[in-house]
Write a protein that binds this DNA or RNA. Structure first.
Lengths: 146, 146
DNA sequence: ACGTTCAAGTTGTACTATACAACCAGAATC
DNA sequence: GATTCTGGTTGTATAGTACAACTTGAACGT
């Protein structure tokens, strides 16, 4: 087995381990917003106004899943649906002010947790690690995660 | 905001994104074994023979969750419970041969997915990325993931 | 222009993973 | 010997997910 194989195995194991723990703990640490809600809200903030179908394909979720998530977020007052003038089937999703606030609050909280965990890393390691992660995830929108 | 802050934010975003996708896709890609079962089986392989409580604390899971997982794995014939001679409350968990086989098979499948995704990375980048991930996850056994 | 097919979303149903609380049984302690 | 601690199971509830069936509106093809 080459060094590259060993590295791939480590990457697999560590990413898997992280994913499992993230899943298990997200709800406990940030009960205001689940991992999915957080992701969807974040997407809406970045590109304000998109369709449910866009979210589904971008995050490899079933449209029914998105439909229910969006329903819950709307009932919670965090997003609003506007009917598209061009296509009567389409609903365009937007963050409400309350949604922006909650999102900002959870982002602060999550960021603090990450920052604490990375507190003793030298800056250039942080930058390189971030670059690797971006490269790893790049181009995988809408796809599975291995 | 410093470069370190930016990097931390990127790390947060990319790790979160990965975790969400891993969760959504693990079942579809490797239906033989969920992410949790895979993790628990892997643990048993590395340190053959441990107690349910150990698994629970190591992976920050409730004992009831582990109890059910273990029950399912036993019913599937992938592990077996041996009663501890010292303490009648304790059951020591071991992989069966079938469990070892399934674990090896899923590991191969998952590793292939990771390898494909990382196919065009130079070896030294793989090694450095792996090292960062290990460092990131190190010491966080049994804890939340941010 | 009308029927067929395609696209966006919703709803019914089912399953997995999870936690919390209540419990039981055995061990340890005082 | 009673109390408390520990390992594990069971009851119950919830979130997140998929698949299938359906509705409504848009687009397309003769």
């Amino acid at each position: 087995m080459t060094a590259a194989d060993t590295a791939v195995e480590t990457i697999q194991r560590e990413m898997t381990s992280f994913a499992r723990r993230a899943r298990a703990s997200a709800g406990r640490m940030h009960p205001e917003l689940s991992l999915v809600s957080y992701t969807l809200l974040g997407h809406l903030e970045e590109r304000g106004g998109c369709r449910a179908t866009d979210l589904a394909s971008h995050y490899a979720l079933d449209k029914s899943t998105v439909s229910r998530q969006v329903g819950a977020l709307e009932r919670a007052g965090l997003i609003e649906r506007r009917l598209s003038p061009e296509d009567a089937r389409v609903q365009v999703l937007h963050l409400t002010e309350a949604g922006e606030e909650i999102l900002a609050q959870v982002t602060r909280s999550r960021r603090a947790a990450f920052r604490e965990r990375l507190a003793d890393w030298p800056e250039d390691d942080l930058v390189r690690f971030a670059a690797y992660l971006e490269r790893y995830n790049a181009g995988s929108a809408g796809q599975a995660a291995g």
